[in-house]
């Protein structure tokens, strides 16, 4: 088996061996549920779909995913286990991929546990379950994008607070890049930048998925976005492993 998968399996088990898993999942479920039903007007809309739920996910992940990633490398440094992990016969890339896959699988578990919402809309009406599925796929890709950013930043500093704040800030940049405020501001002054900002926006790419559209270019965007940040992570790790 590829060493990356062995690292991933260990990491994944570690989430559930500590209170991290419980706290994260409970808070995620409570917040996503509360937002969907209150601000999202889940019942009042009179439509059997998960649009209100999906619309909050990128903003919820904006804070929760960096909380997950801030400890990824910082914890290894604190325990000294980074010295053990990186002196095993694996490359930095394999270690990075392993940690990312574990965190991503963990996010997938948290997302899957929102299934009561899906059951609810199926009881109340006849939703398009294909759209629900692409919506969930989009959520997972957003989580992956934020995870990749957060993991790279976590390798940069041994201070978990700094890692968290920086990761939120960078994720926010990519979440807000496609918002009306930003694009209107930019298109009035720098029309080229507005186009670039929108094309780099995670939330803009995500919105297609919530409408049931899997565009190849959006999929490619997420894949290369994640790949880019994982590459950055491996480079940082290779050069800063000891300090």
């Amino acid at each position: 088996m590829n060493p990356a998968f062995i690292v991933a399996r260990r990491e994944f088990a570690a989430y559930f061996a500590t209170p991290v898993a419980t706290v994260f999942i409970v808070i995620f479920l409570v917040l996503s549920g509360a937002l969907t039903f209150t601000l999202g007007g889940f019942f009042g809309r009179g439509q059997a779909d998960l649009i209100p739920f999906f619309s909050f996910i990128p903003w919820l992940f904006l804070f929760l995913v960096p909380a997950l990633t801030m400890r990824l490398w910082a914890e290894e440094r604190r325990l000294g286990t980074i010295e053990l992990l990186l002196t095993l016969p694996i490359t930095a890339g394999e270690a990075v991929a392993g940690k990312f896959l574990a965190a991503w699988a963990f996010c997938a578990v948290a997302l899957a546990l929102t299934f009561p919402l899906w059951i609810t809309i199926n009881v109340l009406g006849t939703p398009d379950n294909g759209v629900v599925l692409t919506g969930y796929l989009g959520c997972l890709l957003v989580a992956g994008a934020y995870l990749a950013i957060g993991a790279a930043i976590s390798a940069l500093t041994r201070n978990q607070v700094i890692a968290f704040v920086l990761a939120v800030a960078v994720c926010f940049l990519f979440a807000a890049a496609g918002s009306a405020v930003v694009t209107e501001f930019l298109s009035a002054r720098l029309p080229i930048m507005a186009e670039i900002a929108r094309s780099l926006s995670v939330s803009e790419r995500f919105s297609g998925f919530t409408r049931g559209v899997i565009a190849a270019k959006d999929f490619l965007f997420f894949a290369s976005f994640i790949g880019f940040w994982l590459f950055v992570n491996a480079v940082i790790l290779e050069h800063k492993k000891a300090d």
Partner: peptide, 16 residues
Amino acid sequence: KRQLGFLPEGAPTYPE
């Protein structure tokens, strides 16, 4: 690294 057995200073391990 394949040919090496290394005990880092302080013998770090995953505590859980």
